[in-house]
Amino acid sequence: MIDSFILNALIAGICVSIIAGGLGCFIVWRKMAYFGDSLSHSSLFGIAIGIVLGFNATIGTFITCLIFATLLTFLQNKKILSNDTLLGILAHASLSIGIIAISLSNQYINLDAYLFGDILTVTKEETLWFISSAIFVSCMLFLIWEKLVLITINENIAIAEKINIKLIQSLFLVLLVIFVATCVRIVGILLITSMLIIPAAAARQISRSPGKMAIVSGLLGIISILVGVYLSIIADIPTGPSIIFVLTAIFTLILLSIRRY
């Protein structure tokens, strides 16, 4: 019989993997790895606000990430600075502000849990949030899938075909924000981007269509959650890094086996 805390952890992890499968492909295709990283860094600020003001950290993260993503997109469109400079400034500024806010709050907060995740403390009530997030993000992504793929390949063709690219791109950002707010609990701020990128990069090696890449990416994420949680329990190592370690091992194996041919 599996302990209920492990079962909750596995359900949450599988939900996060499903979301990451589809979104991660777009992060890879659109070269948004650094964007994802910055977004997750900003989530610490949201967590701090949530704790200081006494509401749910996930809601705090969601709101801050949403503001951060909007601000980032606005500044990117202004083209005042290059993208990576802009992201570098905003990501680390928000991370610093977040840590300062937490230290000033005079409350004991397990910072490690937010930086590296703490999947084994997910409660039964929280799994409901994970399940509904997974269903919502998957359905939304399915609805905008073809349009978003076309926008990713060539924005101008999409505009000429009367696709409202601003709407679709904004929806994508909202889904990404939901993912970050959800995933912080699982692998932590510092490892969120790898949950998006590594499964997608591994899936790319063995996929011939965008849809298949997303499905394979999701499946690889699920495998890494199952193996990673198991490994962390038997070897008594932190769960978040353990999951990412398994993912990296899968990625390396796929890459090596593909190169052989």
């Binding site: 890879v28 295709w29 793929v149 390949i153 060539n154 996929s207 269509s209 965008p210």
Partner: peptide, 10 residues
């Protein structure tokens, strides 16, 4: 028009 290698599409 260019296509990135990371996009698998026939």
């Amino acid at each position: 028009f260019t296509i990135d290698k990371s996009m698998p599409i026939t």
